[in-house]
Amino acid sequence: VTTYKLVINGKTLKGETTTKAVDAETAEKAFKQYANDNGVDAVWTYDDATKTFTVTEMV
Results as ranks from 00 to 15, higher is better:
Y46E: 00
F31Y: 01
F31V: 01
T12F: 14
K29D: 04
K11P: 12
I8G: 03
Y4W: 04
T19P: 01
F31L: 04
Y46H: 00
T26Q: 11
W44K: 00
V22T: 11
T17K: 12
K11C: 14
K51R: 09
E25K: 12
E25N: 08
T54G: 01
N36K: 14
T50W: 02
L6S: 01
G10H: 10
L13F: 15
G15I: 15
T26H: 09
T3V: 12
A35N: 04
T56A: 05
K29Q: 08
K14H: 11
T54K: 03
Q33P: 02
A35G: 03
A24Q: 11
T3L: 12
L6F: 06
V55S: 03
D41N: 12
T26M: 10
F31I: 02
N38R: 13
K14E: 06
W44H: 00
N36G: 14
A49H: 08
D41F: 13
E25A: 13
D48K: 06
T50P: 00
L13W: 15
L13V: 10
T2E: 10
K29G: 04
W44L: 06
K5M: 06
E57Q: 08
W44G: 00
T3K: 05
G15N: 07
I8N: 01
T12H: 13
N36L: 15
Y4C: 03
Q33Y: 05
T3H: 04
V55T: 04
A24C: 14
N9G: 04
E57S: 07
I8Q: 02
D23E: 02
T3I: 13
Y4I: 02
T17Y: 15
T17H: 14
G10F: 15
K32P: 00
W44M: 08
V55W: 06
A49V: 10
M58R: 12
V1D: 08
V22F: 10
D37M: 15
F53E: 00
T56P: 02
N38K: 12
V55N: 01
A42N: 06
W44Q: 00
Q33M: 10
A35I: 15
G39D: 07
A35C: 15
A30N: 07
E57N: 06
A27V: 02
T50I: 05
E57W: 12
A27W: 02
T56V: 08
V59R: 08
D37R: 11
Y4H: 01
D47F: 02
A49E: 10
T12N: 12
A49C: 07
G10R: 08
T2V: 11
T19G: 03
L13S: 07
Q33I: 11
T12I: 11
E28A: 13
F53I: 03
A49K: 09
T2Y: 14
V40Y: 10
V22C: 09
V55K: 03
V7R: 04
T19N: 03
L6I: 03
D41A: 09
Y46L: 01
K51M: 05
G39S: 07
T45P: 00
T45E: 10
A27T: 01
A42K: 05
V43N: 08
K20T: 11
K11H: 13
T26N: 06
E57R: 06
Y34M: 07
A42I: 09
K32W: 06
N36P: 07
N36Y: 14
E16Y: 13
L13D: 06
D48T: 06
V43K: 08
V59G: 12
E16M: 12
A24D: 03
I8T: 04
K5S: 05
L13T: 07
W44S: 00
G15E: 12
A42V: 08
K32V: 05
V7P: 00
A35H: 08
F31C: 02
A21M: 02
V22E: 08
E57G: 06
K51E: 01
N38T: 12
L13Q: 07
T52R: 01
V7H: 04
L13A: 06
N38Q: 13
D23P: 01
G10A: 12
T17C: 15
G15L: 15
T3Y: 06
T2P: 05
T56D: 07
T19A: 07
T12P: 05
I8L: 09
D41H: 11
A42E: 04
V59M: 10
G10M: 15
V22D: 05
E16W: 13
T56Q: 07
T45V: 08
D48H: 08
F31E: 00
V1N: 08
T26S: 12
G39T: 08
V59W: 13
T19S: 04
T12Q: 09
D37N: 09
V55H: 03
T18L: 08
V59D: 13
F53P: 00
T54S: 05
K5A: 03
Y46V: 00
G10W: 14
L6G: 01
T17L: 14
Y34Q: 03
K29Y: 06
V22S: 09
V7M: 04
Y4M: 01
K29I: 09
L13M: 11
M58C: 13
A21D: 01
E16C: 15
A27L: 02
V55P: 01
K14N: 12
D37K: 12
D48Y: 05
D47Y: 02
I8K: 01
Q33H: 07
K14F: 10
K51L: 06
D47I: 03
K51V: 02
N38S: 10
K20R: 12
L13R: 07
I8P: 00
M58S: 10
T45A: 08
T56S: 08
K14M: 11
D37P: 07
L13G: 11
V7G: 01
D48I: 06
A35K: 04
D37S: 11
E28K: 11
K32M: 09
E25C: 11
T18F: 14
V59L: 11
L6T: 01
T2K: 10
K29R: 12
A24E: 04
Y34H: 04
V59C: 12
A21N: 02
D23T: 05
V22L: 10
V59K: 09
T3P: 02
Q33S: 08
A30G: 03
T54D: 01
T52M: 02
T3C: 13
W44F: 10
N38H: 14
F31K: 00
K14D: 05
T56W: 11
K11F: 13
F31D: 00
F53C: 01
V55Q: 03
T56K: 05
F31T: 00
T17V: 14
K5I: 09
Y46D: 00
D47V: 03
F53H: 00
A27F: 02
V7I: 13
L6Q: 01
T50C: 03
T18H: 08
N36D: 10
K29M: 10
K5E: 02
K32H: 07
L6D: 01
D23G: 02
E16L: 09
D41S: 10
Y4P: 01
D23N: 11
N36M: 15
F31P: 00
V43Y: 10
E57H: 08
T3E: 11
K11D: 08
Y46P: 00
G10K: 08
N9K: 10
K32N: 03
G39M: 14
A42D: 05
F31Q: 00
T52N: 00
Y4G: 01
N38W: 15
K51N: 05
G39R: 05
F53T: 00
A35L: 15
A35V: 15
T56L: 06
A30M: 12
E25G: 07
D48M: 06
T52L: 02
D23W: 02
A27Q: 00
V43D: 06
G10T: 15
A42P: 07
Y34C: 11
V7D: 02
V40E: 05
A21H: 02
K14G: 07
N9Q: 08
K11M: 12
K14Y: 09
V40H: 06
A21W: 04
V7Q: 04
T17I: 15
A42G: 15
A35R: 06
E16D: 05
Q33N: 06
V55F: 05
A35Y: 15
A35D: 02
A30F: 15
Y34A: 03
A42S: 07
F31M: 02
T54L: 05
D41I: 12
T26F: 04
V59A: 10
Y4K: 01
K14C: 15
N38G: 06
L13C: 15
K5W: 12
T17G: 04
V40N: 05
T54F: 11
K20L: 14
T50K: 06
T52V: 04
V1P: 07
G10E: 03
F31A: 01
V1T: 10
T26R: 05
D41C: 12
E16G: 08
A30T: 13
